[in-house]
Design a protein around this nucleic acid. Structure first.
Length: 415
DNA sequence: AATCCACAGGAAGCCCGGGAAC
DNA sequence: GTTCCCGGGCTTCCTGTGGATT
């Protein structure tokens, strides 16, 4: 009986005509054949990198631009081409790509670079200078121009300082037969200000800025991908322009535009609709937002959860803007209730800053004159979404499963 | 003009676990 | 085993500061 029912369900969904033909084309991992509207940027990079083909050292490059402006895609394309050409011409140049989001310490960067040369080093244990000299040894043996791409380089510098960059910028002095040049990619335009001036000067770099896409350009990009991704005739004509317009507002992020388009398709499919409409885009947008914040919050460490819950309660129970001190003293109370040892003020302040970088809250530095300087804090995302996500954590039941009046009592007389 | 609040945020260092080397 | 290095999370201690109030 049950089996029959399930079988029918499968039949029903399998026989559904999908709106998608090749959904992959909308995923982040997909690298398109042609990079639209990035001609100038591509040319700039190629013109700098080209000496590598002649066995000369290219200048170092810093590439800046908001997320989803095609920085990584452009660099990867060029890298592939460069490797192709040099293998044909029997030239030894090497394109090494690293993303510093995951690889965010000196040690890890070096060990990843080494793995490009087939050297497996342990993921901990060695002194870094040993890794460094091993790396030099490896390149030297190959007699090549190595171009090292450090994507999201700002993450690396903000965490580990610029020691590694300084060392890499001066590595050519330690090399006789090989040369290294760097390409740093950063979302943060002010990223160079985190660098020590001596690092900056020994890097001697060129800068390329990727401007955000405008709505028209985003439309081209989306249309291009939609042709591959969707079956013919499923898109109603207002869908692509709408996705483009929304993404253009949010600093021209092509990735976001593609997410919207994909999600719109998924909403249609879930509804068994054969045509994707404006309505699906709006629903999809909402779902992307809710899913995004839910996921972020669920993976937060407990203390961050308690902190954001403090902010949530204050938002619920008071109307005026809350400040760090209030958030912290409510956090202390909540910690007592759930029997979790509280962190110090200093640490909590750092966690609050992290919540801001995650986009969960907004903070504004304000001065209240005689009454001090502090941060004005507010939630940046939907309050119910946050509450539901926090409620999922069993450890926090004793503070989430309480009545509104109990919530108000908790927030009374802080400090 | 000086004061002084309520913090912000930097620096240093501790403790721990992972892992290599001796 | 002991001793070393790295890195993450955390505490302790610290200096710096915009502007309403004195």
């Amino acid at each position: 009986m049950g089996n029959e029912f399930i079988k029918d369900l499968f039949d029903k969904y399998l026989n559904n005509k999908s709106v998608f033909d090749n959904k992959e084309a909308l995923s982040h991992a997909y690298i398109p054949e042609n990079l639209l509207h990035r001609d100038k940027e591509l040319e700039d990079i190629v013109s700098i990198v080209i000496p590598a083909i002649r066995q000369e050292t290219p200048s170092n490059i810093f590439i800046f631009g908001k997320p989803g402006t095609g920085k990584t895609a452009c660099v990867k394309h060029i890298g592939k081409e460069l490797n192709d050409i040099s293998s044909k011409k029997d030239i030894s140049s090497n394109f090494l790509y690293l993303n510093c989001e995951m690889v965010d310490t000196q040690y890890r960067v070096l060990s990843n670079l080494l793995s490009y040369y087939g050297e497996d080093v342990p993921l901990a244990g060695w002194p870094t200078d040993k890794l460094y000299s091993k790396f030099i040894e490896c390149i030297e043996k190959k007699r090549q121009i190595a171009i090292i791409v450090l994507d999201e380089i700002d993450k690396l510098v903000k965490k580990g300082g610029d020691d590694l960059l300084y060392n890499l910028s001066r590595i050519n002095g330690d090399l006789a037969d090989s040369k290294v040049s760097l390409i740093g990619i950063s979302n943060d335009l002010k990223f160079t200000k985190y660098l020590d001036s001596r690092t900056l000067s020994s890097l001697g770099h060129e800068e390329i800025v990727f401007p955000p896409y405008n709505a028209e350009q985003l439309k081209d990009i989306l249309n291009n991908r939609a042709k591959i991704a969707f079956n013919e005739g499923v898109l109603s004509e207002e869908v692509v322009p709408l996705c483009a317009a929304i993404a253009a507002q949010e600093h021209g992020d092509a990735r976001k535009a593609l997410d919207l388009l994909r999600m719109a398709g998924e909403m249609a499919e879930r509804n068994n609709d054969v045509k994707i409409t404006e309505e699906h885009v709006r629903k999809g947008k909402e779902k992307l937002e809710v899913d995004g914040t839910t996921e972020v919050i669920k993976t937060l460490p407990v203390h961050s959860k308690i902190l954001i819950y403090s902010i949530l309660l204050l938002e619920k129970c008071k109307k005026r803007g809350m400040i760090t001190g209030e958030v912290y003293s409510l956090y202390e109370r909540l910690c007592n209730v759930v029997h979790i040892e509280r962190l110090t003020y200093r640490r909590a302040a750092d966690l609050i800053s992290e919540l801001e970088t995650l986009g969960l809250i907004n903070t504004v530095l304000i001065s209240k004159g005689r009454y001090g300087r502090t941060k004005n804090i507010s939630l940046a995302v939907d309050i119910d979404t946050v509450e539901r996500a926090i409620q999922d954590d069993e450890r926090l039941q004793s503070i989430t499963k309480i009545s509104h009046s109990q919530q108000i009592t908790l927030t009374n007389h802080l400090k």
